[in-house]
Write a protein that binds this DNA or RNA. Structure first.
Lengths: 139, 139
DNA sequence: TGGGCCGCTCTCCTTTTGGTGCGTATAAAT
DNA sequence: ATTTATACGCACCAAAAGGAGAGCGGCCCA
């Protein structure tokens, strides 16, 4: 990506203003949104988000068990990213076997809610997507 | 990813049933959502989706120019994935310099609409995320 | 004395991802 | 005769992601 596709074409911006804009979101935020979505939407973040929505507070090994399939490395890494983005809080209890609790912040919860739309879409259009795939593969 | 985390743990499913499940979605939906998000979250799909929302029909090289930075390989690949999932239609005109037109299906349009929620979330919480990041990095 | 628990971190190693560039068919244009 | 334009497919290579497993620090229990 040499430079930003969101600002490239003046006609495109004109069109955006002329038409009933399909997304009324600001164009310049677009890059950051893409970035954010890319970061937030990977496989593990979603699952961890979901698990932490159910059980509001979990420690490291509990998460590792619930997520089931994640490596320690990925769990640590994902949790750090989520912490950095303000999605989870990490509280260390200085006890004898170390204990660290993770829980969602309001920000994290709201993200989960935002993704609910996609979730519902997937639920609604599941069969259509699967049909499209099998039709495509059968050619 | 050795196997599917959504079907792996019996205790988790039991737990899901026992509690007031916050998402009542089917397991296949979960897989599709993860899969879908993983796909849409890649760098190019989102941008192509957006570009095709604005100009409803575009040919290959037009897309290549609008997206600006994408390699031919990635453009082809991403379009094939989107076609397989039923997001775009691909019409080949058997003319002398080949001509192929791409446009969004209703399914593709509705997906764009579904992701609008996440888009809006990101737009709304952008500053908060950035603040969290700088705060985290300053430690 | 020697495990074992917990929450990591670090070091390999393999897999995946993505870019570059070449080949291809075909007819019109030069 | 050669070039040009179009929409790719294919082979090759570099970079990044991600998994496996070892180590570690400190205290408790046998």
């Amino acid at each position: 990506m040499t430079d930003n596709p969101y600002e490239a074409s003046p006609e495109r911006r004109a069109q955006r203003l002329a038409e009933t804009a399909p997304t009324e979101c600001d164009v310049r935020v677009g890059r950051l949104v893409t970035d954010l979505i890319g970061r937030v939407a990977d496989k593990w973040t979603m699952i961890i988000l979901e698990v932490l929505e159910e059980h509001k507070e979990l420690r490291f090994t509990e998460l590792a068990r619930k997520v089931e399939g994640i490596s320690q490395k990925m769990l640590t890494q994902t949790l750090r990213h989520m912490e950095r983005d303000g999605m989870v809080t990490r509280t260390i209890h200085p006890v004898i076997p170390p204990r660290v609790d993770y829980r969602l912040t309001p920000l994290g919860l709201s993200l989960g809610a935002a993704f609910c739309g996609v979730w519902i879409w997937a639920e609604k259009n599941l069969t259509e997507v699967e049909a499209a795939r099998t039709a495509f593969d059968a050619r």
